[in-house]
Nucleic acid binder design. Structure first.
Ligand SMILES: [Mn+2]
Ligand SMILES: [Mn+2]
Ligand SMILES: [Zn+2]
Ligand SMILES: [Zn+2]
Lengths: 151, 151
DNA sequence: AATGTATTGCAATTTTGTTGCAATAATATA
DNA sequence: TATATTATTGCAACAAAATTGCAATACATT
């Protein structure tokens, strides 16, 4: 029960209370594969109210206790590979701009091998990168150089 | 307007009608970066009813005209890298089972380089693979060997 | 142009996520 | 250990996102 100890410490350090519901949700997170909120709500039902599940997950995300797999948007739609060649994306978390990464043989080969290693027959994959684009990097630098304005 | 021709052909081949709304949505998909449904609904408003946007997108997905970026689930939650080392996943579209892919230096390096090439400072990334696990491959083989049952 | 039918828009409904507030449970301290 | 303080929870009401049924409309076929 090493992980629960860390959870308790994080809550404590943040002057937050260690409650049954918070432990219950943490337990669900520990003992299952990555889950959707719907799944978590399902597994909590009778024990914990829907609303509390949402609130605890929000909190855990803020505290860095959990992370989303596929963050930023639920999903986006684009024309399929019939129309567009297979590619991936980098999106800027500053300005939202999205850049296509053209097909990279090395990357695709690597992915194939990961599939083989796990004895899977692969049918699809997604790779998405996030960060700050050149423009937003400059802007950030400029802003942080600016003296703080008194309120 | 080469792409529109292909769209028309696909619709035709499937005995589906070529309508103004369907062309309009296709046009939106062609002329924008990957979009969320909300964005598409927004851009369609006044021209097309929300409901029709949903229905056309469903159809286009079935026909393979569009694809989702981050498919399968909206997002799932798991414990963050404080608790678990950075890793990616393969999930089986047959049985839903998910397998963790342990950190691969080669892969992570490659991703770093993609960021540099685009002049991005990367903050996060997701790689998710889908396919059939060893078990499901066997099961499928067995099933397809079975003779079809008369209705 | 007239006909048959797939497609669309509208209204109603369901599902998912959020907010305000009073009841409850966790902590601090006496 | 009992009591006081206040963060957390559940409930009810609300808002937003997605789905469904059905009648009006637009497309394709003749
Ligand atoms: Mn793209
Ligand atoms: Mn994982
Ligand atoms: Zn940017
Ligand atoms: Zn499987």
């Amino acid at each position: 029960m090493k992980e629960e100890k860390l959870l308790r410490k994080i809550l404590e350090d943040n002057h937050l209370r260690i409650t049954k519901t918070r432990l219950f949700i943490f337990n669900l997170l520990q003992n299952n594969e990555p889950q959707s909120i719907a799944e978590l709500v399902d597994r909590s039902t009778t024990k914990v109210d829907r609303v509390s599940v949402y609130r605890i997950l929000d909190l855990y995300e803020k505290l860095g206790i959990i992370k989303r797999i596929n963050i930023g948007w639920k999903y986006k739609l684009e024309l399929s590979d019939i129309f567009l060649d297979h590619h991936h994306h980098i999106s800027c978390i500053g300005c939202g701009h999205m850049v296509a990464i053209k097909e990279e043989e090395e990357l695709e080969d690597l992915i194939d091998n990961l599939g083989k290693a796990a004895e899977f027959v692969l049918t699809s994959h997604q790779l998405e990168l996030q960060g700050y684009c050149a423009k937003c990097q400059k802007r950030q630098k400029k802003q942080s150089a600016q003296p703080l304005r008194a309120i």
